[in-house]
């Protein structure tokens, strides 16, 4: 995206149901949608657009497991008494064995949740390219209010293709059509 300008032709819709049927039509006509923007998450939009299921939960699972192991191995290494570790500083508490697993469960659980939540959130911001100070181009300021947007990239397109897209917007119920270079 850097250095290269994108010419974008986008249509704004007033209703998410009109938007969904427009996307279906566009896909039937094999139009290459650059992106769809909406003020709120629309149920079933990913199916209509043919978006792949997100794999964020896999990241969450992996981070959670890292948390579990960090806590389990960390405590076991410190207190010893298990087969693997002799212990960094074994201490007897209340006459219990050095390696008293049931007492470790709360911390293991909390660390699992903590690692999973932080890891997944960080991955979310990274793969979406979001973060403090990120300045993504905004096609229209009403997209976070009440407009639904389908955007096409028109770099290197001939006038006839652009006319075709304009025709598509008109037929599919778009209220406004604009172009912008981002």
């Amino acid at each position: 995206m850097k250095g290269q300008h994108k010419e974008v032709l986008f249509g704004l819709y007033n209703d998410e149901i009109v938007l969904m049927s427009a996307i279906t039509k566009a896909r039937k006509q094999h139009l290459d949608i650059m992106d769809v923007y909406s003020p709120f998450p629309i149920h079933g939009l990913d199916t209509v657009m043919g978006l792949e299921e997100s794999r964020l939960h896999i990241a969450g699972f992996i981070f959670g497991m890292i948390g579990t192991l960090t806590a389990l191995i960390g405590i076991s290494w410190i207190f010893g008494g298990s087969l693997m570790f002799e212990g960094d500083w074994p201490t007897i508490f209340g006459g219990k064995p050095y390696w008293s697993l049931p007492a470790f469960v709360p911390i293991i659980f909390e660390m699992t949740v903590l690692f999973c939540a932080i890891g997944m959130t960080v991955v979310f911001y990274i793969i979406c390219g979001l973060g403090f100070g990120v300045d993504n181009p905004i096609l229209d300021e009403r997209i976070t209010d009440d407009k639904f947007c389908i955007a096409f990239q028109t770099n290197g397109m001939g006038q006839s293709d652009i006319d075709h897209l304009n025709g598509f917007f008109k037929k599919s119920g778009a209220e406004e059509v604009h172009t912008r270079t981002i």
Binding site: Y37, L45, H57, I127, C128, G131, N136
Partner: peptide, 17 residues
């Protein structure tokens, strides 16, 4: 607002998260 634009893919991930 971390550069949020309301992209469909972002919303999908947001819902998952």
């Amino acid at each position: 607002s971390v550069g949020w634009t309301g992209k469909a893919k972002h919303w999908q991930r947001h819902e998952y998260l």
